[in-house]
Design a protein around this nucleic acid. Structure first.
Lengths: 210, 210
DNA sequence: TCCTCGGCTGTACGCATGTACAGTATCCTG
DNA sequence: CAGGATACTGTACATGCGTACAGCCGAGGA
């Protein structure tokens, strides 16, 4: 009986303001900006959360828990893209917050990415059960690799074209054409079946035997 | 008659120190740290380069020009991985510097990534001419998509596991197993040929007709 | 009514950082 | 050998930041 009724207090509004500002400006955003965006004083932040690092840790945990509900990043799960989310704007903010954490290259980056891999794993298992996915891909290393490629593509998209408002990112990044192109690439692969190609791989495999 | 003979002066050593520190610590690294690493005073930096932004711009240009020589990031070009580079340590620093620029999500990110796309384009054209690559991939959008995935995977690798020394990144990131997994994924694709899958794509294509 | 406690604020301090400035040594040139 | 430019340094200043601290105010119980 704490989070439920207290969730509309200034404490919660402060956390939301922090999430938004972190997503929009990165983690170097001054506490003063966050306070101003929430319409309170700076001292109230330290009163509720103590230190800035702690505020960020709270945001991390919140984003991580929210992420379990929102099925974002539906590149690998096209069926989920169609269904409307509860609040697309907030979902977009959470996504950008996650990308910001990755861009920060700190400990939080590993946490978020590991959780993403976990979700990809679940999706892939379901897809494999449905006969959609090749058996050869169903190893932990390859699933992790695929997760890195997918999330990384999103990261590049964000880094090379950061939106002014984090709420606009999802609708901007997940264009229909991009989604189709990604899926068709994942279906057909890039390379042809070629002896030259297999020769490449063989060369690499015999690397240290030379 | 400037860069050639002056290239071993303190001015050049300063630029190298900046490159290294930017790669190791990110662009928030203090000028004092760079100066200390170069064994000179802070004032000398401003004397030679004026402002910190200008120093970074010089580093950007230098890294960009160096990048044309080093054929780094050879995920898409396995044949080039085998041949030893002139200076693996420096090549690794340049790579990490590039990744740092992308993590910074500034204007430089777009410059570096566009140049990377350009190189991927060339490699893909050569590979296509050799019969290695499917014709369906040879559109600007898909090449850009593939470049985003490839570079993004590297970005994730870096962000979730940043090396203490930027000189160690390449040998650490481009493991043989990882390379093989990536290539085989690119060859075989992720998905099976399935009517369910085609149905997904069809659904997406008819998106706005509903 | 009084009093206490928690939400909330304004001010101020300490610290890190980029940059400007005055000054010194060293080298090149006439 | 001058003398001026150039490499280089130490110091100091302005700024922006996180955080500590003392105090105000309003609600809620004794």
């Amino acid at each position: 009986m704490r989070t439920a009724e207290e969730d509309m207090t200034a404490r919660a509004r402060l956390r939301e303001a922090a999430l938004f500002c972190f997503a929009r400006d990165g983690f170097t955003v001054p506490l003063r900006t966050i306070a101003q965006h929430a319409g309170v004083s700076v001292a109230l932040i330290t009163h509720h959360y103590g230190t800035k690092d702690n505020l960020r840790a709270v945001c991390d945990d919140y984003a991580l828990s929210q992420y379990r509900d929102y099925k974002l990043l539906a590149v690998a799960q096209p069926a989920a893209v169609g269904q409307s989310l509860a609040d697309p704007a907030e979902a977009s903010i959470m996504t950008v917050y996650m990308l910001r954490s990755l861009l920060d290259a700190g400990p939080a980056a590993k946490r978020f990415f590991d959780q993403f891999v976990e979700q990809v794993q679940l999706i892939m298992e379901a897809s494999f059960a449905a006969g959609l996915v090749r058996a050869s891909v169903m190893t932990p290393e390859r699933i992790r690799l695929m997760a890195a490629d997918t999330m990384g593509g999103l990261l590049i998209q964000f880094a090379t074209n950061p939106p002014a408002d984090p709420r606009d990112f999802i609708s901007q990044a997940f264009s229909k054409d991009r989604l189709i192109a990604q899926l068709e690439l994942y279906r057909d692969g890039y390379f042809t079946d070629s002896p030259l190609f297999d020769q490449y791989i063989q060369t690499i495999k015999e690397w240290d035997h030379a």
